[in-house]
Design a protein around this nucleic acid. Structure first.
Lengths: 186, 186, 186, 186
DNA sequence: AATGAATGAGATTTCATTCAT
DNA sequence: TATGAATGAAATCTCATTCAT
């Protein structure tokens, strides 16, 4: 998966995979373990998905601490950490999402959608006054977008953001908390 | 560039490019116009960069209208429109950023950094009370991130976001305005 | 087709074909002329079939000469000559008929069936007294079988028959004429 | 031998043979029983040859019954039955005769020549008036050819003959008897 | 400027065979 | 005797690039 993440599907040759796995390069040794190059990738994605599934429900870490700022900070840190942990998968998704949708649709679903929904529910619940689902969804989109973006820019596009994590998180928490407490959106 | 954006560098064969350009596929006709496949790509990127350069300074559209909400709405629309317009380039960047950094480093700089800096200056100036550069930068990062993310997710990862543009922009404007007027950050 | 006839489908490597065609062996040059190895074979078979089609109707050479012996001798010579001419195709058919029925079904039809039917009609017509279609068919099967066999044994199985063509034909003509004139079959 | 007959030499992989033999496919288990793939085939052919050797002399079934028609019918049935019984070997011979003559030359000799010689002797003896060896040989070639052909066409080329066995044999017996009793050949 | 044709390099995959366990 | 694992060799096919016309 490291190779796939770094060089994309085509760029990751069977020969390189074999070399990286300690097999004689070019001897076709992986074919005793996987049916095809596609199958190697599928197995790699599967492994990542299994891990993601274990952490599927973001709400598990969104337990009320009584302090909204603390909760938001924790959430932000958690999401960034997760994205970092799945950097390989993310890089690969970015490079190949349009080429191999069949393999990746599920991976993307899990990486993005559940997080999004979970966060929207959290926002609706913890806002004061409580927000309707529509507004909560929109706020979740804006909020998560900021965090995703931070990693997509660096990990996918290779841009170095001029704001470090601590500052980003602090600002983000402030903005989210403001929004959830003022609670007035269109 | 459409081909490069859709299929990546390796996936875009010289033969396909020739076919798309009205030359006989496989006859090597492009080599009368470009020195190599790399040169075709470089020229394509160049063209996009030229266009971006013309729009380089986001501040040109951030002229004070007197109404912060209106200004922010305009800004958001403009940025999303720009990202849509450069979808091909964006797609290609995502797929190949790690493979061909030499060609793309500049493109990315221009696409992201200038927008970012310009927006940060706008935020610093229009906040009430005025913010220092540090805080403005962090807010710009969060704000722009949301917008970038919206396009990166759909165009690069192929995820369909459950919030449409109008709602996203409205919410985003609200949050940004709140932040810029309350002005209290860590 | 010579190569396919001699070494079968798998035994005829693209590399050998290229070498035989004056291309650099192993450089994939045929792929500018044929889509795949299968297509090379298909084109070869097509060419043979076109030739067979031109000679499709054996009855054209079975014109009445007034002399049954002469007619039969001519027929035998003609059929053996045809089989010799299509030796490559025949060899290939024998080697691959069970592996690649899709490509070869037509070829076999033309090589065998039309000859068979045409000959049966001739027998029915020229027998004295005339024979019904059933009997004529059976005699055609026995008669053509002898001739086919002579070539199948040598060309396909590599057996050298101890009887030369002239003697074989003379005997065959005698037996056929006997049968067609005595005319009593079960 | 079933595999070799169905898929040819190259098409029959060691892996398939192992699977069919109840060994773990791909583990190389046959190499404890045979030195090489060639040796597996050689042993298979050997076994068939042993069987053929037992039946080597067609004359054993050509014992005079006093009734020529009956004797010929029996002979025809016997030969067709033998060819059916050795269908696997026959199929393999057709597919590989030109590729692996070293392994098969003997097999073919035995399958064809002894039958041929035996039958020629029978014809010479039982004809009335007795025929010289030359004529008998030619008649044997024509006669056996019809029977061989019937099986070669169906088993090797996959052609369905429009004449069933009973009718074929009846006609064949008639023609052979006619010839052996009229006895006038060129 | 365009094309038909070719080619070196390299990609994925298959397979007979070997070998330590 | 059987197996998991590996490997050299080779097969089909792709592709960027060149070149004479």
């Amino acid at each position: 998966m490291r190779l796939f993440g770094e060089h994309g599907y085509r760029g990751t040759t069977i020969t390189k995979i074999e070399a990286a796995a300690g097999l004689t390069p070019g001897a076709g040794g992986i074919y005793h373990h996987f049916k095809s190059k596609d199958a190697v990738l599928a197995a790699g994605i599967e492994r990542h998905l299994a891990r993601l599934a274990a952490l599927r429900d973001i709400r598990r870490i969104l337990t009320p601490l009584g302090d909204l700022h603390a909760e938001l900070t924790l959430t932000a840190r958690y999401i960034l950490a997760e994205l970092d942990h799945e950097a390989e998968l993310l890089g690969f998704l970015a490079a190949e999402a349009r080429n191999r949708p069949h393999l990746l649709a599920d991976a993307i679903e899990q990486l993005v959608k559940t997080t999004f929904t979970g966060f929207a529910v959290f926002i609706a619940d913890r806002s004061d006054p409580p927000l309707d689902a529509n507004n909560a969804e929109a706020i979740a989109a804006v909020g998560l977008g900021s965090l995703f973006s931070s990693r997509l820019l660096t990990q996918v596009l290779g841009v170095q953001t001029p704001v470090d994590d601590d500052r980003l998180i602090a600002t983000w928490v402030e903005m989210m908390a403001n929004t959830m407490q003022a609670g007035t959106t269109a």
